[in-house]
């Protein structure tokens, strides 16, 4: 098997996709959005609860999609819980750079959160799959912005 493939399908990713964390609805939550990748039919819903200071107190998701989109959603919900919403949005941008292979050529990541997301950097080698990795993040962003729907197109 090629190194690219091995890097894409790391054990951590397979584990999250098989056993996604926070895979549930949050009843009565106001910050929710539906995300779809029209190209491949991946779809998911993101649920967020925020406290009065704009801190994300809980994050969950439901949906179906490929291993990459499910793992990315699962990891995201773990990481953004407890973050200030502005920080979560900033993290989305950094994550976007990471999987697009843009930004600094070799992004050295000191922050813990971004560090954990490093396992998804393998999608860089798979341009057709970048949208799978970013779908949950786009949707999270839409939920925070108050948009009901996010699309990767």
């Amino acid at each position: 098997m090629s190194d690219d493939l091995r890097e894409l399908y790391q054990e951590v990713i397979l584990d999250h996709s098989r056993d996604p964390r926070n895979f549930r609805e949050l009843p009565d939550c106001v910050h929710t959005a539906h995300g779809e990748n029209p190209l491949c039919g991946d779809r998911l819903d993101i649920y967020l609860t925020l406290d009065g200071d704009g801190k994300i107190t809980d994050a969950a998701f439901k949906g179906r999609g490929c291993a990459i989109s499910m793992a990315s959603a699962s990891m995201m919900t773990e990481i953004i819980r407890g973050l200030d919403m502005e920080k979560a949005k900033a993290l989305f941008e950094r994550f976007h750079d990471l999987v697009m292979g843009s930004g600094e050529a070799d992004i050295s990541l000191d922050e813990d959160d971004l560090d954990k997301l490093q396992v998804l950097a393998g999608v860089r080698q798979f341009p057709m799959r970048v949208k799978c990795a970013t779908l949950a993040w786009h949707t999270m962003n839409a939920a925070l912005e108050g948009d009901a729907v996010a699309s990767t197109e």
């Binding site: 039919g41 999609g65 057709m128 799959r129 799978c132």
Partner: peptide, 23 residues
């Protein structure tokens, strides 16, 4: 079973096999 078609498509492509995955 248990594997999304997109993952199948990406992996077999690395064996040189071009198939279509999706709806």
């Amino acid at each position: 079973m248990g594997v999304h078609a997109h993952d199948v498509g990406t992996i077999v492509d690395h064996s040189g096999v071009a198939i279509r995955v999706g709806h």
